[in-house]
Design a protein around this nucleic acid. Structure first.
Length: 544
RNA sequence: UGGGCUAUGGCCAAGCGGUUAAGGCAUCGGACUUUGACUCCGAGAUCGGUAGUUCAAAUCUACCUAGCCCAGCCA
């Protein structure tokens, strides 16, 4: 799958064609302060795929200019997620790699009279900044001499001041209608150890200053970011120009990706983890890449999903069905289709000999013969799904088992239900059925049509298994209620049932289609004698 | 109320002055079917509104409307 036409691809094509750039260089710049989620996947995939399609390259650059928020524990998780998606960065870099260079450029701006040290405290600075509709006022320190600002900045660097005591600001225009241009802070004092540079620095550059310079140092041609940076672009260009960067990168903004019923905010994700509403960042219900991976989503399904949603300058909310579709689409041909009974109901085939079990050879996937075949068992005792039986056939559309009704156990025989055995509490204990030897699958029997086909597992050879049926963490609402009141308290449903014996030696993250039940993946919790499967998505159904 | 951005079927999204306005998801019909799956057919928009420019506009212009973003020493 390739990226189809979008405005950034068009820009790149033109830039290449008219010689504006010789090669496409992009970068993915996560801040190492959180796990990546499916929303980030759009940025990752867009950056890497676009560069790849034009024979260019993409760097991974950790944007670590704020040591109070960042830490290296996220670095490895982020690397792993990107690698999982199948991308290899041309280089792995850190914003902190450029602290020296960035400091020199700050000095350069001071020397050019384009930056000054400001003594305003945060409250004062806010007052001086003005509002959206009223212009700001010049800082009283704005006209400090170049030499004084330089000395002060040196002193800032050398730890002479406490956090917040002074800042270095760009001298631009306090009356600009664009708030970003009202003398933005470009360096602030933070006395905290940095995960990479330790205590070497106590001043750190701001994003708006650091980012364009990093892009320029790396030769990034197309610096892609989200829409909210649109009105930072003029500042981005200002820094590149005033710092006289040799290479001139350009910023382009695209819309963020949201998915229906999905929490996509760092804050809520963190809160879910911190308050134990989920089992960690890799909880299979989480929209993090780690969560989706554990749930069983394939990287192909993620990449195809992102590519199929396209890209534009609109913040979009895509239906979660689209993600699910891309998983089904990916796994349909790829994966073994096997039998699992999630919510078992015991059936006794009264006319089948006690103690006899026959084995039937069945293809793993009729649409992909390369997957081979295995033997499935049939015998006197089998399990079917509870939901595949109703005492009385409710209507003509009911294509499952009922009293007096005959269905086919897929790949085996027709069975007819003759008797329901009840428990004392009135619930169904088991079904007594008879099978018809003539109806064996593959025999060509066509004298009668069964009332549908249901799946089953032979009871004496079945393997017990646990099934996690996961639902969205968020319940639909009219959008008025806050996220936590929309939390789905029944998002993790556990069922204990059985799978066919061929699954005995499954491994973590092996995917299957459990016939008629959906796509499942073997969970990390699976041990030698304990099988656990997560349902990735259900099968589509037109059953109404 | 200042500035920026956006507006194509239910949800995404192509389209860049002349096409019967791509495609995907969803939906609704129908065919096929040992998964109510898959697959296959078929159905649906005149492009936020108005007024212009033009032989011709979703594509250009103006105005209007609606939504999103910006007043961190966050990114």
């Amino acid at each position: 799958m390739e990226i189809e036409s979008n405005f950034i691809k068009t820009i790149m094509e033109e830039d290449l064609k008219n010689g504006k750039v010789k090669e496409i260089v992009t970068r993915f710049p996560p801040e190492p302060n959180a796990y990546l989620h499916i929303g980030h996947a759009r940025a990752i995939i867009t950056n890497f795929e676009l560069a790849k399609q034009f024979g260019g390259k993409t760097n991974l650059r950790f944007d670590d200019t704020n040591p109070v928020k960042e830490d290296s524990s996220f670095v490895d998780a982020i690397k792993k997620d990107i690698e999982w998606l199948g991308y290899k960065p041309a280089k792995v870099l850190f914003g902190s790699d450029y602290f020296d260079a960035s400091y020199d450029l700050a000095v350069k701006l001071i020397k050019k009279g384009l930056a000054y040290v400001c003594d305003l405290n945060p409250e004062e600075m806010r007052e001086y900044r003005g509002t959206l509709t009223t212009p700001g006022k010049d800082s009283p320190y704005r006209n400090r001499s170049v030499e004084e600002s330089y000395q002060l900045f040196e002193a800032m660097k050398n730890g002479k001041y406490k956090d917040g005591e002074k800042t270095l600001r760009a001298k631009i225009d306090m009356s600009s209608p664009n708030m970003n241009m009202r003398d933005p802070v470009i360096y602030r004092i933070i006395h905290i150890d940095h995960h990479n540079t330790g205590n070497k620095w106590c001043i750190y550059p701001m994003y708006d200053f650091a980012h364009p310079l990093q892009d320029a140092f790396e030769g990034v041609t197309h610096s892609l970011c989200s829409l909210e940076y649109d009105d930072h672009r003029v500042l981005y260009d200002w820094f590149v120009e005033k710092c006289e960067m040799e290479h001139v990168p350009h910023q382009y903004e695209f819309g963020r990706l949201n998915i229906t019923n999905t929490i996509m905010s760092k804050r809520y994700l963190k809160q879910l983890v911190d308050e134990n509403m989920v089992k960690g960042y890799d909880d299979p219900r989480m929209p993090t890449l780690a969560g989706l991976r554990r749930r069983g989503y394939t990287k192909e399904s993620i990449v195809n999903f992102i590519l199929s949603t396209g890209l534009s300058r609109v913040n979009s909310t895509v239906s979660s069905e689209m993600l699910e579709n891309s998983l089904r689409d990916d796994l349909n041909q790829k994966v073994k289709r096997v039998n699992a009974v999630i919510d078992p109901l015991k059936v006794v085939i009264t006319n089948y000999p006690e103690g006899k079990v026959e084995w039937i050879d069945v293809e793993y996937n009729p649409d992909n013969l390369e997957l081979g075949s295995r033997k499935i068992a049939f015998g006197r005792y089998v399990y079917i799904e509870k939901e595949d039986f109703l005492e009385e056939k409710p209507n003509k559309k009911w294509k499952r088992l009922s009293l007096g009704i005959e269905v086919r156990l897929m790949q085996a025989y027709f069975i007819k239900c003759n008797e329901i055995v009840f428990n004392e509490d009135g619930s169904i204990k088991e079904l007594h059925c008879t099978y018809d030897e003539k109806t064996k699958s593959g025999s060509g029997f066509d004298e009668r049509k069964p009332n549908g086909n249901i799946h089953f597992v032979e009871a004496t050879t079945a393997l017990p298994a646990t099934f996690n049926l996961l639902e969205p963490l968020l319940i639909d609402s009219d959008g008025k209620k806050d996220l936590f009141s929309r939390l789905n308290l029944n998002s993790w449903n556990i069922f204990n049932g059985f799978v066919e014996p061929s699954l005995e030696k499954t491994h973590h993250l092996e995917r299957f289609q459990f016939i008629r039940k959906g796509y499942f993946a073997t969970d990390y919790d699976t041990k030698d004698n304990k099988l656990v499967f997560n349902r990735i998505v259900e099968l589509k159904t037109s059953f109404k």
